[in-house]
Design a protein around this nucleic acid. Sequence first.
DNA 1: AAAACGGTCAACCGCGTTCCG
DNA 2: TCGGAACGCGGTTGACCGTTT
Length: 462
Amino acid sequence: MGRAPCCDKQGLKKGPWTPDEDQKLVAYIQRHGHGSWRALPKHAGLLRCGKSCRLRWTNYLRPDIKRGRFSLDEEQLIIHLHAILGNRWSAIAAHLPGRTDNEIKNYWNTHLKKRLLHMGIDPVTHKATQSPPLLSSKLSHLAQWDSARLEAEARLARRTSSHDHPDHDTFLRSWKSQATGPLRSDHLPSVPLVPSFMQNWEQSHAQHLASPEFSSCRSTSTTTSSSPSGASSTLEFDSAGAALLLNHLHSSMSSSNSQLNQMESLMSPTSTLRPFDGQDCSSYSSPVPSDSMVQHHCERLMQNSNSSSCTAMNTFPGLISETSMFPSNVGFVDHETSMSVNPCRAPPTTSLWQQPLVQLDSAAAAHAAISSVSDGPSCSVLSSEDESSSSYGSVLQLPPEMLLDLVDSAMGGSNKCMSVAASSAGSCWPDVSQLAGKDYWSNMLKLVGPPCQEMPLAVMDR
DNA sequence: AAAACGGTCAACCGCGTTCCG
DNA sequence: TCGGAACGCGGTTGACCGTTT
């Protein structure tokens, strides 16, 4: 036989709880703990079923429940987690201390979902469903600032969650399966690049590309593209060359000694990055896109915007660019709380990665925002203010995978390149689980692969 | 002043899972 | 091992309240 029924369903009270009932429930739980919910109402002198008591306690009376409005950080985290977890409110609530699943669910349904919908973003898929009406008009109000911020968060979250795309999994499995053997990279496609980017790329890697290994296995062709950006070049590697390139990228990113310096020398011959205020940034090891790459990406976005000026800069945890016009705490992450104090309000989780910022005037930002919607999720406008009311203009936030995103977007979103990005990023991620103290992120890291020391390095198959 | 409307959120409902006798 | 109740979770409801007409 099963259990005995917990209570007689008849004669039980339903509906809103009275203060007297609340007092009885709290007093009983404080003295005895809740123990068995089915037995609690009888012992506490309540004419309620155990289920009702449990809900009242967990959703309202529990002493650690946080009351009041959701903070912006909480909003960002909800959007971010929802993009990954969907409507799993209890799982989302586990990452917002003091908030209940019911509260988060209500807040999503009454606030966040509507705002995303209003911006033309599907709150289920977190993908743009249409041109956001707000972005197609003037970007000059606080509501639009807020909308742009939410849009950026949704995009960022979606891109982060894209690691569990089936194609990506397939490639990761393929990658991992080669741990004991040489990397077979003949499946890597050629990479079409716009000329300015290709020039930067080749300059940055001149030494490597000039090596006999590379020169014997690469070729360059130029084709005319129908895209607004005009002609594009294709940098092609055969399998050996692709393997070498991968190896070069990977080893440069994953080496533990002087990692930041190596990445900087790899990606940014003109970088002006410097440590900020003596902060120990040795625990951070995110790949750093160079100023020139940010500049290039900015140029791409600006090609249709007729903007006259564009100031590029890099920020990432613990470091700040000398070219920054922002307050000195831009991009800084509190080591204790892992909370970002960056005014763009990047979610704490994503702020563990670099947050390249591109400064534009409002008109340019509007154009860039629109082009980013139609041209793929390569960037997001985080904020937009009237030039007259702000010391700085609008801010574009490029996603953390920007470095390889440049390649990825040029390839039309090839899953292979995304995989390279994930592998590289995974190998360079800081210990997020330690910083955030969340088991969840450990699980997320498992999804995208083991840390660098466990990752197989590409080996030339020649 | 009052009806209509819309937003909010605590509480309930129903279903799948877990637990226990 | 099985059956049934408890539990946990997500969806839905409806009372309440503020705003608009």
